[in-house]
Amino acid sequence: MEYISLQNIGLVTGFLLILTGLYGALTNKNILRIIVSFTIFDAGLNLVIVALSYMKGRVAPIIDKTTGIHHLSDKFVDPVPQALVLTSIVIGVGVTGVMLTYALKMFKTRQSLDIKDFKETKW
């Protein structure tokens, strides 16, 4: 029963979201559904990285009166993965915006949202 810790719950949920997002991106034909699957994949990936930074019994890395300023490395969770995930979420929204603009342009040329109709780069 000591396997059910908060970090393990986060890791398992994140891995299942990654697999679901990849399956959706590989199987769907509607291009908007592919982009939704990529959003799910991003959410799962960020959850895995933040779950790896958690340690049991420690608090968030903000210094205030209750934590003091001595022996901080015994009281805080890991702040480095949180900084990386901050960057990753913002980049995710930028890439989603560019993907959606491309989808809009593709729809304007061919009037279809099915990726089987766009065969120019297939050989």
Binding site: I63, L72, D78, P79
Partner: peptide, 20 residues
């Protein structure tokens, strides 16, 4: 085969100790 960390690794310990 993953175990949770019991103490901060070296680089984050440096960051949290010297951030103030």
């Amino acid at each position: 085969t993953h175990h949770e960390n019991t103490s901060l690794p070296e680089l984050p310990a440096y960051y949290t100790d010297n951030a103030d």
